[in-house]
Amino acid sequence: MGKGLAGKRIAIGGSRKIEEISTLIEKQGGIPVVRPLQGTVFLAEKEVEPDLQNFVMEGADWVIFTTGIGTETLLNLAETLGIKDQFLNRIQQASVASRGYKTLATLKKIGIKPVATDEDGTTRGLIRSLESFDFSGKRVMVQLHGETAPTLIKFLEDRGASVLTILPYQHIAPDSETVAKLCEELLNNELDAVCFTTAIQVRSLFNFARENGCLTEVLQSFQGRALAAAVGKVTAEALVEEGVERLLAPELERMGAMIIELSRYYEKL
């Protein structure tokens, strides 16, 4: 095995499998720098209940599901509240769109065939599939998971839709001192790469940079010494949305593949 990361300081933005990813970096000769950018994600039953009841009462012209686990959670919550049949009935009456193969599989289980699906698992892919539809004056319910999908919401609102978002899982921000430390290291050119494993981690870093007046400098650091590495398409998409122009993402959407891809990148250099 090569040592493409020899002497490279690689920040880890994830909060899961830290030991595993650190070992992979070390095997490639790198120095892992643990900077978790993801706080906890919790099931927000009480917060979701009014929105779910509202949807069941009023319905929607369109229903857009963005994650399999979020779709399953809404079905389970509706069952707990005794409104599952009404919930399913509202979905059946609407035009349905879905993002991701897990979401599609969940909808298939309940006999729902979406009229629009992405071709690549990304929000941009989903938006492309929705571009031919008329949303003017339409009521659209969007199921989210942990983050707010600003590009999708803007697309719908720009086309005249009234959007109701339902967020069954909500995200608690990571420790601000950790994010501040990562920003400082980026600005001081102390990191060679930052590995992101979810879109939420990307949002955490860039929201912090925006709020603390160092967004331009953080973006410049990613154009300079630090390389942004994304575990897959959805995470890469979030980086692009935040203005990162130079990034790396493996074909195989796995953490190990991301580290190997990073190692190969530096070996070529």
Rank of each mutant, 00 (worst) to 15 (best):
L252I: 13
E237T: 10
I69K: 13
D192E: 15
R159H: 14
T122D: 00
K108T: 15
K46E: 15
R35K: 15
G2H: 11
V240C: 10
R128V: 09
E237M: 06
R225W: 00
A238Q: 13
F222K: 03
E157Y: 04
T67L: 03
G39M: 08
F222D: 04
A193V: 13
A173T: 14
E217A: 14
A44Y: 04
R99V: 08
G59E: 07
I153H: 01
K268Q: 13
F55T: 03
E211Y: 02
Q53P: 11
G30V: 07
A236P: 04
E261G: 12
A94T: 04
G29F: 03
I112A: 03
Y101F: 13
H145R: 07
W62Y: 11
T23F: 09
T197P: 05
K8N: 08
I110H: 05
K102P: 01
E245D: 11
M1H: 13
K268N: 12
G39T: 00
Q38P: 08
S263L: 03
M1I: 13
D120Y: 04
A257Q: 06
E19K: 14
I172Y: 09
L52C: 07
V218Y: 02
S22P: 12
G14Y: 01
G7H: 10
D118P: 10
I10P: 04
L239W: 01
A149I: 11
A149D: 15
K181Y: 08
K138F: 05
G256Y: 00
E184K: 13
D175R: 12
L5A: 07
P114I: 09
L107G: 09
E147R: 08
S98N: 08
R225C: 03
A11K: 01
K108Y: 07
G2C: 11
C183H: 05
A97I: 02
G137D: 04
A161R: 05
Q86I: 07
D118G: 04
F87A: 06
G68A: 08
E131L: 07
E47S: 09
S95A: 12
A230H: 03
G256N: 09
S162N: 13
E147W: 12
T66R: 04
P36E: 07
F65Q: 02
Q86M: 11
V41W: 01
A11N: 09
R35G: 00
E261H: 11
L107W: 00
L104K: 15
A209R: 00
L74G: 09
E58Y: 12
G4W: 02
E47V: 07
I83E: 00
T197L: 03
S136W: 11
T165C: 11
A105T: 12
